[in-house]
Design a protein around this nucleic acid. Structure first.
Length: 1080
RNA sequence: GCCCGGAUGGUGGAAUGGUAGACACGCAAGACUUAAAAUCUUGUAAUCAUCGCGAUUGUGCGGGUUCAAGUCCCGCUCCGGGUACCA
């Protein structure tokens, strides 16, 4: 009987299904082990030979653990939401659910052929309502939670609301979008809608206007990890920056915990390092820089020494650039001056409306866009003007009209009262104001950059630096072009130049900015004062400073920062070295080492000491504060797409509310087309009756990582309709013990998943803080392309080694019609009609192809399908060959050339059991040599599996079977344990032979044999004898020979004298069991 | 630029500081066969050689530690991956 793998594999695959061999249930009497693969996105192309690599490795491990007595959870499912299915739907009209279903079916067929031990009864698909119910549920939980920086965990929002009611923000430190402080009174006086707006600032899932990566071709926003080099990860389309209102997840709140958690888990150092870099913690200080005061308008001669009040009320008329607020300080002074010199009517009204007498906070003499408004309510952006005598002139009326129009443009409404009305009945005027305010919807909660109230007259900005020690070397400041500070510091003289620069910057896409790294920038005209030494330093704008990091402003130290250095050289700004011996004539000295000079009180300290001292100085002198910054940004969670989870959110009065938990899931609706609506709304805008209790539902859907962030928990309890996972199931299965997948998820899925899990941990839903205890990255399988060489302008092809004698073009040829780099000429002729009459110049009667390692893709004709390999060699051969290819974590090209060796090994193993049709296994007792071969493989396999060194254990199997074949061993006592040890690698043949040996249960329920050191002991040791490190001959000694005796007998050996060449021995080293070295 | 890997025969790759090249592919020779496939046996790092004794060199390059280095240390070169004006 031959090794007929086809029948065997079909037979046992059926048996495993019929006997539910791989179904697992919680079993407290056994220790658990959870082995997980990153679940695949079922693409239309199906699996290629690279996909199963990780699955095979994890399957070997799972089967091994089962043999070792563990209750192994080894599930599989599909990450079924995603862009490709939707893009395909847009092109063809085919519903993504249909193509996804087809692709899943195809994946399943392919997976089933390889003999995995997945428990398919636990399958999950992210696009199924029973599954995404729990994605939506988690989102609601995040919406209803805030992150407390003091207790370092998520808390229910109700707890925080009750604190707001009692003491406002006092004593709280919550993760938020914008820092806010308010009192209990303030909170209580807000309308429900206003309270909702405030809460949005704190929610873990929140709605915000943020700069997003907008991809016009895909018609959606993308997360940072979905953008690579300025183009989309999927499709490679350009991405631009745009401000949009989007759902976000406050991942940044967990930065420190995500960093700390890395210490507790068993991941490769390189992967942890990638995550550390992505989180990007940097310790430093925030330092406040005050602007150097501008010359007053009088000093500049722009206005008369003693302007009339009439002029001052309308500074816009003669300040050329009041919107730029460069005359801020002057205006503030005027406003202050006005306040103490109010007109009688103004004073009367002020007394009637001040201190919330009418229920609204009113400010007086407030600067708005260069105008000084008499009274203002900021919240509703309503300005109240009191018109005295001067307002009665025609000219002034015209000016007032213009002024009102300008203020309206900025969203302010203006109501006017005359002196007479006020004197007549001030209470009546107050009431009118109140009525007016009641009717106007509130517009805002924070102060607008266009206005400035009492007390905020001093202009300053804050920078973040990790090198506070270099403060004495700050020779200029740089603002990001998008910085809020820009408008505050630009002088009238520089305005047009700055505007030109800002426009140019805006036009450049992210990609262009990255492509050319030219030094660009513009001077604002303003100066700041160095808080350490009082020196005036110019303020510049440049796009090398990013608005999104730190405060969007930096203090530039060209001597010790390479980017600042390049900028300083380009614009000829001063460079002051601060470290002794640092040569900054050619480049900056960025290293944090050396002794400080030119640095006042820091002189003589080392850089490290200086950093510490500078921080202390900054804190003590109130110049700023010590600060830790993280690069990690909040995750943007909205996608303007169809094929994703709908949000369980509806809008009432413009504010979002969550759907009741019992109404989950909110199912994805049908739409007529998978495109945005005519009005530019996302595809869900096309859904009919897309409402919840008459209120409109959210039109965005969730991104790809939503469904993949907690899927490992669902496997633990996949059919539970009452919880994501029950506490009992989670207590038993815990977190994933071994997670296998590609490195490409290092900064996406593996961050989001950890964040999601930590959030659920805070809520007490899961018991483990980290989701994946051990993680292994399998290497990528690259393609190995083959080439034929066509002689130019002919239909003649020349073999690889003769190719250089002709003028040829290289053509990719389908690797499936090439074997060991030899072309199958008949198949080649049939492959393409134009090659049907091709002629060939051969070498040694063969056509040899060239080869190259490239990405595996259809266009390179180098895709190898696992089905074809299974068809030709069987699943066991495929499994073992993929493992034999090389170390699991290493990337390597797929090369079918070596597969015969593995297949031969299985046939040789088969040959130990069957000679012809006869089953030749006997019950004879084994010899010592046979036992040694067996116990060697038991020991080696166990060690190698635990160290994920599968390629070496397969070598060991080959050695073992070669040895047994040489010994002609067909003894049950050897072969039965061998089959069990082999079964994780080649389960089909193992199952067949295990049953052939008379067993009636599956080999999966066998016990992994224990090795016994006594069978491994060698009776004799072969000592290499070396002279000055060079091995010359070997000598055999009984294993228990003492070192002294070995030395003696080596020295007495006649060969020793020969190699000594009569020289004197200086030293003899005998390493017991290893080697002898004679030094002379 | 920074961080992380890696570099060993014609090829994939082995090697707790102790005989470098296990195991496999490929190739060559042989056996079986009318022949081919399959299978089995032998050989296969390079150079020299009085090609069945042997010798020399050899793990990207240059140093070092050690009785002994592919392995440890220092300095480079090249290749692969990740990441980036992150202050």
């Amino acid at each position: 009987m031959d090794y007929s793998f086809k029948e065997i594999e079909k037979k046992w695959q059926r048996y495993w299904i019929e006997n539910a061999t791989y179904k697992v249930t919680e079993n407290p009497s056994k220790p658990k082990y959870y082995v997980l693969d990153m679940f695949p996105y079922p693409s239309g192309a199906g699996l290629h030979v690279g996909h199963p690599l990780g699955y095979i490795a994890s399957d070997i491990f799972a089967r091994y653990k089962r043999l070792k007595g563990f209750n192994v959870l080894h599930p599989m499912g599909y990450d079924a939401y995603g862009l490709p299915a939707e893009q395909y739907a847009i092109q063809t009209g085919q519903h993504p659910a249909v193509t996804t279903e087809q692709n899943i079916k195809r994946y399943r067929e392919q997976l089933d052929k390889i003999g995995f031990s997945f428990d398919w009864s636990r399958e999950v698909r992210t696009c199924e309502p029973e599954y995404y119910k729990w994605t939506q549920w988690a989102f609601i939980k995040m919406f209803n939670s805030v992150y407390c920086n003091l207790c370092k965990k998520a808390l229910p929002i109700e707890n925080i609301i009750s604190v707001f009611e009692e003491c406002g923000t006092e004593g709280l430190n919550l993760a938020c979008s914008e820092p806010m402080t308010f009192t209990a009174e303030f909170w209580k006086s807000r309308t429900e809608k206003e309270q909702q707006e405030i809460l949005m600032n704190y929610r873990i899932a929140y709605l915000a206007d943020t700069m997003v990566n907008w991809c016009p071709q895909l018609g959606t926003v993308l997360a940072n990890d979905e953008v690579i080099n300025g183009v989309s990860e999927r499709g490679g389309y350009p991405v631009e920056q745009r401000k949009m209102r989007q759902w976000c997840l406050r991942v940044s709140a967990y930065s420190q915990r995500l960093l700390d958690g890395l210490e507790k888990i068993d991941w490769t150092e390189s992967l942890k390092e990638t995550q550390r870099n992505w989180i990007g913690r940097s310790e430093g200080a925030e330092i406040r820089f005050y602007l150097s005061p501008d010359p007053s308008p009088q000093e500049r001669g722009e206005i008369p020494e003693n302007p009339s009040r009439e002029m001052l009320e309308n500074p816009k008329g003669w300040f050329k650039n009041t919107t730029d607020e460069n005359n801020w300080k002057f205006l503030i002074n005027i406003a202050k001056d006005f306040r103490s010199n109010q007109t009688e009517a103004e004073n009367e009204l002020w007394q009637a409306i001040r201190a919330k007498k009418i229920g609204y906070k009113i400010r007086r003499q407030h600067i708005v866009d260069g105008f000084i408004a008499d009274f203002i309510n900021l919240e509703k952006q309503v300005i109240i003007e009191v018109d005295g005598g001067i307002h009665l002139t025609t000219e002034q009326k015209e000016r007032d009209k213009q002024r009102t129009a300008i203020l309206n443009q900025f969203g302010f409404e203006v109501i006017r009262f005359t002196n007479e009305e006020i004197f007549d009945n001030v209470q009546n005027v107050a009431l009118k104001i109140k009525d007016y305010l009641d009717k106007v919807p509130s517009k805002r909660t924070a102060t607008t950059p266009l206005s400035c109230g009492e007390g905020s007259g001093e202009r300053s900005f804050v920078v973040f630096t990790t090198r506070p020690d270099t403060i004495f070397g700050v020779t200029f400041m740089v603002l990001a072009p998008e910085s809020e500070y820009v408008s505050q510091v630009v002088t009238p003289e520089q305005k047009s130049e700055v505007d030109t620069y800002l426009d140019a910057t805006k036009k450049r896409t992210e990609r262009e900015r990255q492509a050319d790294r030219k030094v660009t920038g513009v001077f604002t005209g303003s100066y700041a004062i160095n808080p350490a030494n009082g020196v005036e330093i110019p303020i510049w704008i440049s796009d090398y400073v990013l608005a999104g990091y730190g405060t969007g402003a930096i203090m530039a130290v060209p001597a010790h920062d390479s980017r600042d250095y390049a900028f300083a050289k380009h614009f000829n700004l001063p460079i002051i070295p601060l470290i002794e011996g640092a040569d900054v004539s050619e480049e900056s000295f960025d290293a944090k080492e050396g002794t400080m000079i030119n640095s006042g009180f820091l002189n003589g300290l080392t850089v490290k000491e200086a950093i510490k001292k500078a921080k202390e100085y900054i804190a003590e002198n109130n110049l700023g504060k010590v600060k830790v910054n993280y690069r990690l940004r909040d995750a943007i969670f909205s996608r303007q797409r169809y094929w994703g989870e709908p949000f369980p959110i509806y809008y009432k009065d413009g504010m979002p509310y969550t759907v009741a938990l019992e109404d989950l899931p909110i199912e994805l609706p049908e739409v007529d087309k998978f495109l945005p609506t005519e009005t530019g709304e996302p595809p869900l805008g096309r859904a009919k009756n897309w409402k919840y209790e008459k209120y409109p539902l959210e039109l965005n859907t969730m991104p790809g990582f939503a469904g993949s962030s907690a899927y490992y928990l669902r496997y633990e309890d996949p059919h539970n309709d009452n919880a994501l996972v029950s506490r009992e199931a989670n207590d038993y299965w815990g977190n994933v013990d071994l997670y296998l997948g590609g490195t490409e998820h290092a900064t996406g899925h593996l961050i989001y998943s950890r964040f999601w899990n930590k959030f659920l941990f805070d809520l007490g839903i899961v018991g483990k803080d980290e989701p994946f205890q051990k993680l292994i990255n399998q290497g990528m399988i690259q393609g190995r392309s083959n080439f034929v060489y066509r002689v130019k302008n002919t239909n003649t092809f020349v073999s690889y080694n003769l190719e250089n004698k002709y003028d040829t073009t290289e053509i990719h040829v389908d690797v499936n019609i090439v074997s060991n780099d030899v072309l199958d000429i008949e198949k080649f002729r049939a492959w393409r009609p134009e090659f049907a009459d091709a002629e060939f110049i051969l070498e040694d009667g063969k056509y040899v192809c060239g080869y190259a390692v490239e990405k595996m893709s259809k266009s390179m004709f180098n895709v190898v399908n696992p089905d074809d390999i299974v068809e030709k060699y069987g699943a066991d051969t495929l499994r073992m060959y993929e493992m034999f290819l090389g170390p699991l974590e290493q990337s390597k090209p797929w090369d079918t050339n070596g597969i015969d060796g593995v297949h031969r090994f299985l046939k040789r193993l088969w040959g130990l059991f069957y000679k012809g049709d006869e089953f030749v296994v006997t019950d004879e007792p084994p010899t010592a040599e046979e036992l040694k071969a067996l116990h060697k493989i038991i020991k080696k396999t166990a060690y190698d599996i635990e160290h994920f060194s599968f390629n070496t254990s397969i070598s060991a199997f080959m050695i073992c079977v070669n040895e047994l074949a040489t010994l002609k061993c067909s003894k049950r006592a050897i072969l039965e344990p061998l089959v069990i040890v082999l079964s994780p690698f080649a389960p089909h043949i193992a199952e067949e032979l295990y049953h052939a040996l008379g067993n009636t249960t599956t080999v999966c329920d066998a016990q992994f044999p224990e090795y016994d050191e006594k069978y491994l002991a060698e009776s004799s040791v072969k000592y290499p004898v070396s002279f000055n490190g060079k091995v010359r001959f070997t000598l055999d000694f009984p294993a228990d020979t003492q070192a002294k005796e070995v030395e003696k007998s080596v020295l007495e050996n006649e060969q020793t004298a020969k190699f000594l060449e009569g020289k004197e021995i200086k030293k003899v080293i005998v390493v017991p069991g290893k080697i002898v070295n004679i030094v002379f």
